[in-house]
């Protein structure tokens, strides 16, 4: 199966949270609910230096998604391209899925009374567009696509970084 997904290069994410607002506008998400949420870790001391990291937390569209098994209503499914979807018509808002999600990615939408999480903007991506967060990311550090293809880009980059570390260039 193809696994479409989102990859974030954390080295360049600087915590602007544009992705959060882009997602809100695109998907009309009310206050209090976030399909994507950038968590700031730090400032903390790491290896004797001050360090802050920014981690955009969102649904990982797991290959073996625990939320699907947790749902007793059959409201969560996985498309053939790997996108995990919640059907708000079937969802009863029990949030069993959120208990099983290892990333805290699922919240209750107070307006629809259904579980809410990232759907990789499939209405855009099916039409050949990027998800709204990827489109608007100022650091250009978000990638959407077949995860194995994205990894080819990342491998190249990481190999360069690895050499840089070794040679101190």
């Amino acid at each position: 199966m193809i696994q479409k997904n989102l990859y974030v290069d954390l080295e360049y994410c600087f915590g602007c949270r544009v992705c959060e607002v882009a997602c809100k506008q695109e998907n009309n998400i009310p206050v209090g609910v976030k399909r994507i949420n950038v968590v700031t870790v730090g400032p903390r001391i790491a290896e004797g230096k001050l360090k802050t990291d920014f981690v955009p937390m969102r649904c990982r569209h797991c290959a073996k998604a625990p939320c699907i098994d947790a749902c007793r209503e059959g409201a969560i499914s996985k498309r053939s391209d790997g996108i995990v979807l919640i059907n708000p018509e079937l969802c009863i808002g029990c949030m069993l899925c959120s208990e099983k999600c290892p990333f805290g990615a699922i919240q209750l939408n107070p307006e629809t009374q259904a579980a809410e999480m990232c759907n990789l903007c499939f209405h855009r991506t099916d039409a050949g567009l990027e998800p709204a967060c990827v489109h608007h990311c100022p650091a250009d550090c978000m990638y959407f696509g077949n995860i194995n293809d994205i990894m080819k880009i990342i491998r190249k980059k990481q190999s360069e970084r690895m050499l840089e570390k070794e040679t101190g260039l």
Partner: peptide
């Protein structure tokens, strides 16, 4: 949404503009 063909922002936007 951000205009990818504008040289200033190349499609990106900020929270102020997006909201």
């Amino acid at each position: 949404e951000g205009d990818p063909e504008h040289p200033q922002n190349e499609g990106i936007m900020c929270p102020r503009g997006l909201s």
